[in-house]
Simulated assay, not measured.
Amino acid sequence: MKKSLLTLICLLVAVGFSQAQLLPTFKLGVKGALGFSSLSSEGKMFNSDTKTGFQLGLWGRVGIAGFHVQPEAYYASKKVGIEYTQAEGEDGDATFKSFDVPVLLGTKIGLGPIGFRIQAGPVFSFAQDGKVNFTTATDWDKYKKTSTGIIGGIGADISKFTVDLRYEHGLTNLNENSNYDQKIRMWTIGVGFAFL
């Protein structure tokens, strides 16, 4: 009798655990991040130094069976240092201000309130005003208003708090001049809080 009761309890616990893994989960939160950006230039017009910018916005996460989709929406200020290799302009810093929308796919490993995530996906950027703010009088208004890239990274959840380390690799040539293939490269480290 005891063995039958123990077997029944174990079976109920196992079924409950497996169904919990199949039930969808939903989270919604806020995030902030520091971004360390550079601008690659295959035309060798300039060298780019890494500068620090920021991100502020919202994130959501829908998960089922150990996998999740995490769309985000945030304002981003990406700064780069410019050092010309030719006498075409003055050295200085450029700032790309945009509204970014990444859609990340990932999985989470962990138990209870602590878990570790691996995520990757595309990011779509929409320039705030279609221009680049530059610290000198150089004409930098020939930049595209939209661009795409890819993001990948790791993260951790500790109860309602999140920490992320990501790398963003631009896929779109930002310059409308096809002679200069310029793309953003950026590392970010961010923190977030889930209020749902």
Rank of each mutant, 00 (worst) to 15 (best):
T135L: 07
A120L: 10
G115L: 00
T85G: 10
K78R: 14
T107W: 11
K79F: 04
F124D: 00
A127F: 13
D129W: 00
E83N: 15
I82L: 09
F67A: 13
F134C: 04
V80N: 02
F134P: 00
A76H: 10
Q70A: 13
V69S: 05
I82Y: 01
F126C: 12
L104C: 07
G81K: 06
F99N: 03
Y84D: 06
K97D: 01
V62E: 05
L105H: 13
G130L: 05
A65P: 02
G60N: 09
T135D: 06
Q119N: 07
G81F: 02
A137C: 11
T50Q: 12
G57E: 05
Y84R: 02
E90R: 10
T85E: 10
A65H: 09
G106K: 01
W59T: 01
A73Q: 03
Q128P: 00
K78N: 03
P71H: 11
V103W: 06
G130Q: 06
P71R: 14
G121V: 05
K108Y: 08
G53A: 04
I118A: 15
A137E: 15
D91A: 03
Q86I: 14
V103M: 02
L56F: 03
G106Y: 04
G110C: 04
S98Y: 07
G92V: 04
F99S: 00
F99V: 06
I64E: 07
E88T: 12
G130A: 11
